[in-house]
Design a protein around this nucleic acid. Sequence first.
DNA 1: CGGTCGTTTGAAGTGGTTCAAGCCTTGTGG
DNA 2: CCACAAGGCTTGAACCACTTCAAACGACCG
Lengths: 235, 235
Amino acid sequence: MPQPSAMLKESFNHAVAGLIQACGLSAASAESLRELIGSTERYPAGSLVSSMSPAPRLKWTLSGCGCELRVLPDGRRQIFSFVLPGDPFLSRPVNAANPCEVIALTNLECIDVALTLDGADGSDRAEILKAIDRALALAHARRYEDIVRLARRSALERVAELLLEMHDRLHQIGMVDERGFHLPLTQEHLADALGLSVVHVNRSLKALRTHGLATFRFGRVSDLDRAGLRALCPA
Amino acid sequence: MPQPSAMLKESFNHAVAGLIQACGLSAASAESLRELIGSTERYPAGSLVSSMSPAPRLKWTLSGCGCELRVLPDGRRQIFSFVLPGDPFLSRPVNAANPCEVIALTNLECIDVALTLDGADGSDRAEILKAIDRALALAHARRYEDIVRLARRSALERVAELLLEMHDRLHQIGMVDERGFHLPLTQEHLADALGLSVVHVNRSLKALRTHGLATFRFGRVSDLDRAGLRALCPA
DNA sequence: CGGTCGTTTGAAGTGGTTCAAGCCTTGTGG
DNA sequence: CCACAAGGCTTGAACCACTTCAAACGACCG
């Protein structure tokens, strides 16, 4: 069993990889960021991640998985996005004006960006902030993909595309191995994200499995055939 | 027939109302903005609004109506948003990395924000930019509503909600009168925005008409029963 | 070892699509 | 000013993707 500090280091390497590869963070600034991280915020699986302060606070995920969601008046939920290690997100009080919550799906560890960068050297600080802003912009751009997915794709295509997206994102941060990857979601989570019923998500997953395109069971994805899935959901 | 300058003034009053009411622009800065506007960019109905420059350019709509859309490989279109007078939008070259175009639905008149504010007084410039940034943020927040709409609402609810949204936005800029409002869209545009077939949009509009909730015909909305429509699509 | 949550399967119902045809409205040219 | 063409609107009929309801099964946890 690794020490806490070793675990943090391991987590950090995964999380920072996204900023480096997709958001142009330099190795030097990544190292500075590592040194700046003092105490982290920890949220247990299932808990609400919500800051008390009226102004939204920018957070950056070190480890674990969460989601942004809204609870509708009839009790159904719409999941807007999944938060993975290395992803920034906004934490704010949930109320009528902001009906969008962040929920931890596993134990989730993150830092408050502004607090962490408080004592940073000016140029490091600027570079790290720029990279996190780019990561936020990437997350925003994903909302357009979500709209296309919900409006124009069949159930099978939606599930396939989501599995591909998760594979891409987890691969980039080194959390995919030859056996596949861990995806701590239930079929209900997929349904809530994809605008489908749980039953139909189940049937779609079965179809993917039967066709040898992907297997998602008990929180693990394996046997992912990227080319085959790609062919399913063009552009 | 009003003079061109009179028409511009009229248009400007509508367009700037949104910035004042929803984005906190002061009357003084609004007046400064009016004086800063020199030549305007004009795009004929149906044309693509796309800047040549590689970097995206922030534009601000004076008059007319457009939409942000993506053309899918199978030829179908997904409309992400409608651009109305007073709305900012990003104009950029359309290519593989940015498959999202802006199309003018009517003759559309806009300014390039950076160019227009170039010679502005510092504090006016900052205030105007802040207001336009808020308008952009409001437009971004609408993407979340769109996702809920597409994922969780029935056809009737989607159409009702879109008509309500358009009424809200046009009312705010003073473009609704007692007879209703002009909405220069075809049923196909609604279908492309709402993820429905044209035929079903038609049936939904007929249902709204029959129930006395709203009439949309030939580019005009009339007999809009806000309370009734609201009741249809809760929260 | 029992309870709970997640997964799987079947059967029946429904909301929306597709195809096809006719109608209305608007713009254009003789 | 009328005739005609083109695009948009409307309606019907058949079909299908997805939902809902219901029940059984499996995995994990205390």
